[in-house]
Design a protein around this nucleic acid. Structure first.
Lengths: 104, 104
DNA sequence: ATCGTACATCGTATATATACGATAGCATTA
DNA sequence: TAATGCTATCGTATATATACGATGTACGAT
């Protein structure tokens, strides 16, 4: 990329594409499924369930966190992750609008 | 990536992540919007509407085509692109299922 | 104070993605 | 046949993403 052209596009589409990018790896989709099932979860538990090294899982968590789809909470001695429901709902609403717009 | 771990994940999640990846750039979201509005469209028309060079637009079209979200049709002398409605509907169905699964 | 546990971050290797100019292919038109 | 218009592909530069071992950080337990 000589220069990033991404921001020459409508804000809404940039937001939608950013969220889609956050879901563009099956590990991150799996993480969201696991978090939904357990309400909250430590990184270590995810490492057990996923075919990836701890550093890699941590990296995927960062991507989801930066996209605002999950959040980390300090729960006493442990760091627990959980879904950011507000943004999750925003994402699915935006996707639904997009679908509606395409189908008209 | 030393080795791609992608395929160690459930087929359904790989499919969903592939479609999300196809939507992970605002140019491709814009292209889908334009195609939906015009039913069908030539590459050249897209180049006019997007802040990108012709080669780059063609590359984005390839990504969408490879993901199965659009298709090219030879219409007499011209090559016209249009949505692949079947796969588009599959994608939004899968996304909806995913949302349902997360909300449970 | 030391140890162990849990996790983030660093460093690094490699693969993909983004962007564009240049060029090739392939019809239609002159 | 030559010129034109449209688009895919090549070549190339650069930015991001993926993956993991090693290391750093924080803190409760011994």
């Amino acid at each position: 990329m000589v220069t990033a052209k991404k921001d020459d596009f409508p804000e809404k589409d940039v937001q939608l594409s950013d969220w889609c990018k956050a879901l563009s790896h099956p590990a991150r989709i799996s993480i969201l499924r696991i978090l939904a099932a357990r309400t909250e979860c430590q990184c270590g538990e995810l490492v057990i369930d996923l075919p990836l090294a701890q550093a890699t899982v941590s990296q995927h968590l960062k991507v989801l966190k930066d996209a605002g789809l999950i959040q980390g909470e300090v729960d006493g001695p442990r760091l627990k992750y959980c879904m950011n429901k507000k943004n999750k709902d925003r994402f699915f609403k935006l996707i639904e609008q997009f679908n509606y717009h395409l189908s008209e």
